[in-house]
Amino acid sequence: MQRWQIRPGNTTPLGLESAPSETPGPGEVRIRVRAASLNFRDLLALRGTYPMASNRPIVPLSDGAGEVVKTGSDVSRVAEGDRVTATTISNWIDGAFDPASARQSIGFSVDGWLAEEIVLPETALVKLPDAISYEAGATLACAGVTAWNAIVERAHIGPGDHVLALGTGGVSMFAVQIAKLVGASVLVTSSSDAKIERARALGADGGVNYVTHPDWGERVRELTGGAGVDLVIENAGTLQQSLKAARHGGAIAVIGMLALLSTAGAPRPAPGGGGDLMDVFRSGATVTPIVMGNRRMLTRLVDAYATRGIAPVIDRTFRFSDAPAAYAALASAGHIGKIVVTV
């Protein structure tokens, strides 16, 4: 089988190689990969700037979907022929995040989905209904579950609430869809009026161009009748403006490395947008870090999208042989939603 590997220290860090098929052990299954998708942290891992990246060659990408083709002994949750995806941390089944579980982070600590085959523990898997394509299923585990965790599990957003999603990338476009799913209204921010219009066409109720409105937190308040939003999906390292945009007592969901690191992997600067504890105190907001989500959350998300017929926003799809071009497209930041590689 063919697989792509990130090779730390190599002049060409992403390389394609042949490898033998792996035999699944007890409780494991081998999956014929059909699609995988990229997240911001995958770009950092390729550049060697992701804090939790492996220092050894590793198959990247935490998100994918495919068909079970072989099962090891003691497997009972899935069978050969099942269509599946998997939670991004293979041993995080339910409950709160345990940092020790990061040792089983797919695509970072253990080999990921950018290959023709992958072997995973059956406990990580979630079955995909026929209503969800492999390409759609491959986008859900990281960005989709992160947005679901922030909106549904943590903030308990519902009808009449207001959500603000920063940007128009994968997490933000999932936030648009999930906010509308639960009956909330949702705004987005962008430096591009064209992207805002595309987001509106995909379900957003409006948007703010943060170049035209540098003090965009105040503009968001104006658009919500002076009240502010109930939840901000903070993935841009602009906490001060997010606190301005939120209602008093609202919630700020800080989305992992998106909010903490720049595209070069350096910490995002605080001046002008970082905020401090006094800003938090005055706002009365609850600031909560969101670290993706567990298998139970992924199962609920899959069920919701299948039942309601929602299709994740996929901007571009690349062939397996063109994986480097998919990374380049992610780096260009011209996309809305997700970038997918078909296998």
Rank of each mutant, 00 (worst) to 15 (best):
I6T: 04
S21D: 14
T23I: 09
G25K: 15
E28K: 11
E28A: 07
R34G: 10
A36R: 10
S37T: 11
G48T: 08
G48L: 09
G48R: 04
T49Q: 10
M52S: 11
S54N: 14
N55Y: 00
R56T: 12
I58Y: 00
I58R: 11
S62H: 01
D63Y: 01
G66M: 03
G72Q: 07
V75S: 03
E80H: 01
G81C: 04
D82T: 05
R83W: 02
T87C: 05
T88L: 05
S90R: 06
D94S: 15
G95W: 13
P99V: 10
S101W: 13
R103N: 10
Q104A: 14
W113G: 01
A115S: 15
E116N: 09
P121G: 07
E122H: 06
A124R: 06
V126F: 02
A131V: 01
S133D: 07
E135F: 00
G137S: 07
A138P: 08
C142E: 13
G144E: 10
T146P: 12
A147V: 03
I151S: 12
I151H: 06
E153W: 00
E153V: 12
R154L: 11
V163E: 10
L166F: 01
G167W: 00
T168F: 02
G169S: 04
G170Q: 05
V171F: 01
V171R: 04
Q177T: 03
I178W: 02
L181D: 06
V182I: 13
V182S: 13
V182H: 11
V188F: 02
S191K: 10
S192A: 05
D193L: 09
A194R: 09
A194H: 12
K195F: 01
K195W: 03
I196V: 07
G203R: 06
G207I: 03
V211A: 15
E218Y: 01
E218G: 02
E218F: 00
E222M: 06
L223C: 04
G225W: 03
A227I: 13
V229M: 03
A236H: 00
K244R: 14
G249I: 14
G249T: 13
A253Q: 09
V254H: 03
G256A: 06
L261C: 06
L261S: 13
T263F: 09
T263Y: 06
G265L: 15
A266T: 15
A270G: 10
P271V: 12
M278Y: 08
D279Q: 13
F281A: 09
F281W: 13
F281T: 11
V287K: 10
V287F: 12
T288E: 10
M292K: 01
G293T: 11
R296Y: 00
T299E: 15
T299R: 10
Y305G: 04
R308Q: 14
I314L: 12
R319W: 00
D322I: 03
P324Q: 05
A326E: 12
Y327N: 02
Y327V: 07
A328R: 15
L330A: 12
L330H: 06
H335F: 02
H335N: 15
G337M: 14
K338I: 13
T342I: 08
V343R: 09
